[in-house]
Design a protein around this nucleic acid. Structure first.
Lengths: 105, 105
DNA sequence: TTTGTTGGTAAGTCATTACTTACCGTAAGT
DNA sequence: ACTTACGGTAAGTAATGACTTACCAACAAA
């Protein structure tokens, strides 16, 4: 459940499509696979990757497994991007400041 | 400059390390390479990927090329994560609502 | 003009990975 | 008990990609 796993998980187009599908709510494997151009086992493998990255959770109901987005996983990614964003704004500001000093004394 | 390219770019650990290095400000290629366990050409290749993903910009000064984080690129990623996050919270809220209705009438 | 520094590109190699089919376990319906 | 639906795992393959060394172009200093 590191940033590494998060980005690797979301880097694959099929996997991100699956993740996007779960955006609208929990879904069983067979139904997810219906909307994808790959076989069901491939979808299972992708879900495994998403799961070990902490991005999805599964709930067994009968023979079905309902996968859903795991909020904590998404939150981690959000934190990384936000802290990066803050840093960049900060550094950009200080860069401008230096430029100003250069010309104003 | 699609989400695809963004995630692919950030999925590689070396490439993300380079990107993180640029978090603190612009930097020339040779200096970036010094802090990485790979060769300078490898760093060049990574920078090319980051650039075509719209995540970094370059500014030539003499023989040196100073790379820096491109705010718009980061902003795009931030938008994606935020919209996803909003959707998930929304879905979670409506799920709770349904649970309530189930028990309260 | 030559020499050194910086950095992008080319070509080749090795490892990773996304996919397939085949298979098996488990739960539900008849 | 038998059959059908669901879904995870195994094994093999083909493609992608991250790395290396060798090379070349551009600018700077001597």
């Amino acid at each position: 459940m590191t940033y590494q796993q998060t980005f690797e998980a979301l880097a694959d187009p099929t996997r991100r499509a699956i993740f996007e599908k779960l955006r609208s709510g929990p879904c069983a494997v067979a139904e997810i696979a219906q909307h994808q151009p790959v076989s069901r086992p491939a979808v299972s493998q992708h879900l495994k990757v998403l799961h070990s990255a902490g991005l999805v959770d599964a709930k067994q109901v009968g023979t079905r497994r309902y996968y859903s987005v795991r909020r904590e996983g998404l939150s981690e990614l959000r934190k990384w991007v936000d802290s990066f964003w803050t840093d960049i704004l900060e550094n950009y500001a200080s860069h401008i400041r230096k430029q100003m000093e250069k010309y104003n004394g």
